[in-house]
Amino acid sequence: MSPWALLLVIVSAVTHATWNLLSKRSSQADGVVFVWLVAVVSAVVWAPLFAGFLLVTGDVPGWRDLVAIAGSTTLHLCYFVLLQRGYGSGDLSLVYPVARGTGPMLASLVAVLFLGERPSVANVAGIVLVGAGVFLMGGDAARGGLGAVLPGVVIGLFIAAYTVWDSQVVGPFAVAPIALIYLGEVGRALVLAPVVLGGRRELVAPVWREHRWRIAGAAVLIFVSYLLVLVAFTLAPVTVVAPAREISVLIAVVLGGRLLAEGDLARRLLAAGVILGGVVAIALS
């Protein structure tokens, strides 16, 4: 992995773990309303940046691009809604590692089997270490129960799906990362609008009043985090970027243990050492 790609992945990991902390702290609110408000705020906040991108580059997405972006929007919508529900019943340091562990391993497997990528021995070892570490970290299901583990696994499936799909969208399809992310936010806001304004309208105001700063923070950090990852996809293959960004698991476990008092910090930090070993192996491959 190039130094620039590694730097992008590390910064993305920090921002990713942070917005997940904000989501966890908002998990008792209605999940669909929360996801919709985040998408709406993101669409408003980042509109000037997207408009500037269009004016400077003239790179207006065509129909082929919009179809690819629609596929990404669908996968991300399922991911965000399931993630918010998972946090409603489980610890950040349980749901997050299980989800993030399932995702990159499946993404790397798909990339090798169907996209023609050929990882080195060190790369394979790194993927195995990352996977082993995150599953060891989420291995104690007693605190969150089965209801926390299963959503994590399902969330991981969608992480794998959107990771592979989006890597192709910004790679072979050559869709600009900023267009993919911004139009994805707009798409989620539009798709969820009838659901929220039709049956959950009365929940919008109270959720906004109680969680507006977390909503705004998530809207900014989600965009930044994934933009960095998509740029990294243009500098390194999926088998390198997808597992390496899982250093965010270490950050999320520390946040969960220190700020949310979820416990079991020593064991989960030990497991994080395994993850770091995998990240080093991937970075040096």
Score class of each variant (00 low, 15 high):
I69F: 10
T73D: 07
T73L: 12
L75I: 03
H76I: 10
H76Y: 07
L77R: 00
L77N: 07
C78H: 03
F80M: 06
F80N: 03
V81D: 11
V81S: 13
V81W: 14
L82M: 11
L82C: 06
L82V: 04
L83F: 04
L83Y: 02
L83I: 02
Q84Y: 12
Q84W: 12
R85A: 14
R85Q: 14
R85C: 13
G86C: 13
G86H: 10
G86W: 06
Y87K: 14
G88F: 12
S89E: 15
G90E: 07
G90F: 09
D91R: 13
D91G: 08
L92C: 12
S93Y: 09
L94M: 01
L94P: 07
V95C: 01
V95Q: 01
V95M: 01
V98W: 04
A99F: 04
A99R: 04
A99H: 00
R100A: 00
T102S: 02
T102H: 01
S108W: 07
L109G: 07
V110L: 14
A111L: 11
L113K: 04
F114I: 03
F114V: 08
R118P: 06
R118L: 08
P119F: 08
P119E: 11
S120E: 14
V121F: 10
N123H: 13
N123P: 01
N123A: 10
V124P: 08
A125L: 15
A125T: 11
G126D: 14
G126A: 12
G126I: 12
I127P: 05
V128N: 14
V128D: 15
L129I: 15
G131T: 15
G131F: 09
G131Y: 11
G131L: 13
A132V: 14
G133L: 13
G133E: 12
V134S: 07
V134K: 06
F135H: 13
L136C: 11
M137R: 04
G139Q: 06
G139S: 04
D140R: 13
A141I: 09
A142C: 08
R143P: 03
G144V: 01
L146G: 07
L146M: 05
G147S: 12
L150G: 08
L150V: 15
P151W: 06
G152L: 03
V153S: 00
L157Y: 04
L157M: 09
